[in-house]
Computed example of a mutant assay.
Amino acid sequence: MTTSSPRLLLIATLVLAVAGVVLLALPHRPSASASPTLPPGAASAARASDSPASGHRAASRAPASDTTAATPTRSAIASALPPHGEGVAGDAVIQKSLEAAWPADLAADDERKLLAAGRGLLRADTTGVGRATWPAVFGDPGQAIAPAFATARFRIQAAIARRDGSPNKAVVHLVWAGTDRGGTYTDRRITDWYFTRTTSKKEGGSTWTPQPRT
């Protein structure tokens, strides 16, 4: 047993050495748990998304939705408006902002009539001037009602007339400035007047009737 042990150890050592050489000679293959390689197309897309510059270019090429293109956001409109207290010089900017936010959708003649009526109603409501023209809206013209705003410093800054969900309904959107009875001047006030189209057989046409304020 003592003479054969060294011989067995030598044989075992030679077998292990040969096995090691054989294993080293075989080609290396990744294990199943290694990360798989991406297809060429996916790899190029991943590289593009990793680059901030290419990602920015891709975002800029993406088309905007129809809603975003048609109607600016409120923050965009607000940022385009002049500061409070700008005076008459800023009225044109407010008018353009309204027209950009709500594109025209009424016939020119209807829009003209609605704007004239909306302006007159706002003036009558705030200053008391011309209330007798709309007794259905303001009630008895002989009843004395103290105006809430002074006529001298009342000013309509901008106005548009648009459909209100139906061809026979409309709204006049007005932005205005005025001084109240307490002497406080405020601009960019907002008032909406709503109208319905009524047909008159006697007159052979249609008219826009203002709805009472609620």
Rank of each mutant, 00 (worst) to 15 (best):
V21S: 14
V21Y: 11
V21F: 12
V22S: 14
A25M: 07
P27A: 00
P27Y: 02
H28Y: 11
H28C: 09
H28G: 14
R29C: 12
P30E: 09
S31D: 15
A34E: 09
A34Q: 09
P36L: 10
T37Q: 13
T37N: 07
L38K: 12
P39R: 08
A42E: 12
A42T: 05
A43Y: 11
A46F: 04
A46H: 13
R47T: 10
D50A: 14
D50Y: 04
D50G: 14
D50Q: 11
P52C: 05
P52A: 06
S54A: 14
S54E: 14
H56P: 02
R57H: 12
A62R: 12
P63Q: 03
A64R: 14
S65I: 09
S65W: 00
T67C: 12
T67M: 11
T68A: 15
A69K: 11
A70V: 10
T71C: 14
P72K: 11
R74K: 13
A76L: 09
I77F: 06
A78R: 06
S79Q: 13
S79Y: 02
A80R: 01
A80L: 01
L81F: 07
P82T: 06
P83Y: 02
P83N: 06
G85E: 01
G85Y: 02
E86N: 11
G87S: 03
V88R: 03
A92S: 09
V93W: 00
V93C: 01
Q95V: 02
Q95F: 05
L98N: 05
L98T: 01
E99P: 00
E99N: 12
A100K: 13
W102L: 15
P103Y: 04
L106Y: 00
L106R: 01
D110C: 06
E111S: 02
E111Y: 00
E111M: 01
E111V: 00
L114D: 07
G118M: 08
R119I: 13
G120Q: 12
L122C: 14
A124V: 13
T126Q: 15
T126A: 15
T126V: 14
T127L: 13
T127E: 06
G128A: 07
G130K: 01
A132T: 05
A132H: 01
W134H: 13
P135N: 09
P135E: 04
G142M: 01
Q143C: 10
I145K: 04
I145W: 00
A146E: 08
A146N: 08
A148Y: 03
T151Q: 11
T151R: 05
